[in-house]
Design a protein around this nucleic acid. Structure first.
Length: 110
DNA sequence: ATCCTGACCACAA
DNA sequence: GTTGTGGCCAGGA
């Protein structure tokens, strides 16, 4: 396993229950700014058994990244709501539940 | 080596 | 809301 992969997993594992973070924010917290796609790729390869709060990772827009109506999509909504995160129309308000709502902008913007 | 794809992101129209 | 553009880069063909 690559060191970068381990750091991404650690960053995801560090999201507290009831909160969410974007792919970009996770990458940044893993010391890999600008590598949001790596996070997405890794999440697609998470083995069923692995203990990881993958459902707390959303797009920068707050949308769930999975296809609407897919089994995993519904699973993600269910698990988020189970810990108090409001999901409206496949989306979460990062301003209310996001860990670093402004981090993405700070990294790429300006 | 190249080309294409993708649980991404921001910015400008 | 919607493109489109450019950036990122691992994996597979």
């Amino acid at each position: 396993m690559q060191d970068s992969h381990a750091r991404v997993y650690a960053a995801i594992a560090a999201i507290p229950p009831g909160r969410v973070a974007s792919y970009g924010a996770i990458a940044a917290r893993a010391g890999l700014p600008g590598r949001a796609r790596l996070v997405g790729r890794l999440l697609g390869e998470v083995p069923d058994g692995m203990e990881l709060p993958w459902f707390r990772v959303l797009r920068a827009s707050g949308e769930i990244a999975l296809p609407r109506g897919s089994r995993d999509f519904r699973e993600q909504v269910r698990r988020l709501r189970a810990e108090g995160v409001e999901v409206k129309n496949g989306r979460v308000a990062l301003s209310a539940f996001g860990l670093d709502a402004n981090l993405d902008r700070a990294l790429w913007g300006m």
